[in-house]
Amino acid sequence: MDNESLIQIKGIREGLLINAENGTWDDRKAELLRMVKQKEAFFKGARVCLDVNDTALRVKQITQLCDQLSALNVTLWAILSTSETTVNNARVLALETSLPTKKENKEKNDSNERVENNGEKAVLVNKTLRAGYRVESLDHVIIIGDVNPGAEIVSAGNIIVWGKLKGSAIAGAEGNLKAVICAMELRPTQLRIGEKVFPPQQKKGKTFPEVAYIENNECKIELWNKEKGR
């Protein structure tokens, strides 16, 4: 029964939060699977979020756990960790890495002016996103690197790409039409802000840093221009 302390389960708004912060990964995994099997009826169809503290998990370890849990009818939808490796690997597998922030916060943000978004949280990805990668966040998303065709970014806030944006980007995904998408080179597969889908554009030759936004319910793309005060 020693192992009991390896795993704590809490109910949260989004489902179950499982804390597995101590012990070796194999022990924790075995204990978690044992618990799920034991209380099968309770866990059936559950969506769980796993907090692993500072454990660095590899893609293989995460996929293994995902597979084993889904065999028991449990969906792993998020992994919380302070380890950068784990967070990055979880993102690669399209798992959430943070719990949604509370509604009230978000509404407060929405009423803010775009210009005054000082001090808000953002997800920083310091590498090129290749095809098949997806970054999803309720915070702003900043990419240092390119976003290749076939990669996707979904953010409830703004999206900033310090590189070429050639994949898909959805800003203001929760309906914030004040969100903007900007990139050093804007040649996206698709752009969306809130529900608005930007018409496809054909660009040849050299491009300059641009920003996409919604004004009077219309999709606009403009050269980055500091005089605009943005």
């Binding site: 893609v59 290749r130 095809a131 098949g132």
Partner: peptide, 19 residues
């Protein structure tokens, strides 16, 4: 070809993820 390059990009990402 665009389609082959897209898939190669994905593969390279997966190879990186597997270290």
């Amino acid at each position: 070809e665009v389609s082959a390059v897209r898939d190669a990009d994905r593969i390279i990402g997966l190879v990186e993820a597997e270290e």
